[in-house]
Amino acid sequence: MSLIAAKIALTPTLMWAVSAASRRWGSLVGGLLSGLPLTSAPISIYLALEQGESFAAEAAIGSVEGLGAVTLCYLAYALCAPRMGPVASLCAALSAFVLSGIVLHGLVRPGLWLATAIDVPAMALVVALCPRAADPDAPRRRPRPPRWDMPARLAAATALVLMVSGLAPTLGSGLSGLLAPIPIISWPLIAFARFQDGVRASLDVVRGSAQGAFGVLAFYVCIHLLLGRTDTITAYAVSIALSAACVLPWLFVGRRVRAG
């Protein structure tokens, strides 16, 4: 099965699961799950299998740079959402992604470790700017979502996946890596949360996505260091495990905060 065919089947399933988790446990958990490398990891695996391990390892550097652009996109939304309407704040966030991507990848090219040093404090700042609701698990009275809600989410996420999958193989390792961490699942989740549940819910998604980005960063750094030094299966297994290990503690931290 080709990557595009796999993503047509996989992306709606992941989007449905994350959306269902968001409805069941709140927007913060949905954002945290959407921040995992649910789509970027398959792209990296595809690059390793089709273009070679060295190509995928170099693409990981571009992905770390791209993750900085994604984080600055979240930062722009966190700053604009409380002060602007939904369309304006979403456009500002996407503009921040494009501009920071051009600067970080096209002009500065900071490399793996400098990009990591930029990403970590930026992600921490996004988390700080999106404080948790007093009780995110408290039941909310919400109107039942319209019938078109879930199909629209699935279509939006799948369309973005197909766009990235179609462009990445032709752009080289740097630009392919830059496209890989685009938050294909979290962007639609943020938009739908904003339009349906307001600013607070969308900021919960952003916070969870920024927390999940620590795991994405760990995944790409590990991939760059391991590919070519160990077999492909081991490299990706260790990288995915490390990514999960960086994300899961956020759930326990949240529970301790609520318990206190």
Score class of each variant (00 low, 15 high):
residue 73 C to F: 02
residue 80 C to Y: 00
residue 23 R to A: 15
residue 24 R to Y: 03
residue 73 C to V: 02
residue 86 P to V: 10
residue 39 T to F: 03
residue 78 A to F: 04
residue 63 S to Y: 01
residue 26 G to S: 05
residue 60 A to N: 04
residue 70 V to A: 14
residue 84 M to L: 15
residue 60 A to R: 02
residue 55 F to M: 09
residue 16 W to G: 02
residue 14 L to G: 06
residue 80 C to V: 05
residue 67 L to V: 08
residue 28 L to C: 01
residue 37 P to I: 01
residue 45 I to R: 12
residue 15 M to P: 01
residue 59 A to Q: 12
residue 23 R to I: 00
residue 20 A to W: 11
residue 39 T to N: 10
residue 30 G to I: 01
residue 84 M to D: 04
residue 19 S to E: 12
residue 55 F to H: 12
residue 51 Q to W: 04
residue 78 A to S: 15
residue 14 L to H: 01
residue 50 E to I: 05
residue 54 S to N: 13
residue 52 G to A: 10
residue 16 W to L: 13
residue 42 P to H: 03
residue 35 G to V: 02
residue 57 A to N: 11
residue 57 A to I: 02
residue 61 I to D: 12
residue 21 A to S: 11
residue 80 C to R: 14
residue 20 A to G: 02
residue 39 T to S: 14
residue 70 V to K: 02
residue 61 I to A: 12
residue 76 A to R: 07
residue 51 Q to L: 13
residue 32 L to C: 09
residue 25 W to T: 10
residue 21 A to K: 13
residue 39 T to K: 07
residue 37 P to Q: 08
residue 30 G to K: 07
residue 77 Y to F: 14
residue 14 L to F: 10
residue 59 A to R: 05
residue 11 T to C: 14
residue 72 L to A: 08
residue 20 A to I: 02
residue 47 L to V: 04
residue 82 P to W: 07
residue 45 I to V: 14
residue 81 A to L: 06
residue 38 L to S: 05
residue 28 L to W: 14
residue 70 V to T: 14
residue 47 L to P: 00
residue 82 P to V: 00
residue 76 A to F: 01
residue 17 A to H: 07
residue 42 P to L: 07
residue 31 G to W: 06
residue 37 P to E: 07
residue 56 A to S: 15
residue 64 V to I: 13
residue 84 M to K: 15
residue 73 C to D: 01
residue 46 Y to R: 08
residue 27 S to V: 00
residue 18 V to H: 11
residue 76 A to T: 01
residue 34 S to I: 05
residue 41 A to I: 07
residue 64 V to H: 00
residue 39 T to W: 03
residue 56 A to F: 06
residue 24 R to M: 08
residue 26 G to E: 07
residue 49 L to Q: 13
residue 72 L to Q: 13
residue 76 A to K: 07
residue 23 R to T: 08
residue 45 I to P: 00
residue 37 P to Y: 04
residue 38 L to Q: 10
residue 60 A to P: 00
residue 28 L to Q: 14
residue 65 E to T: 03
residue 64 V to T: 09
residue 12 P to N: 09
residue 71 T to A: 15
residue 44 S to H: 12
residue 49 L to S: 14
residue 78 A to T: 13
residue 26 G to W: 05
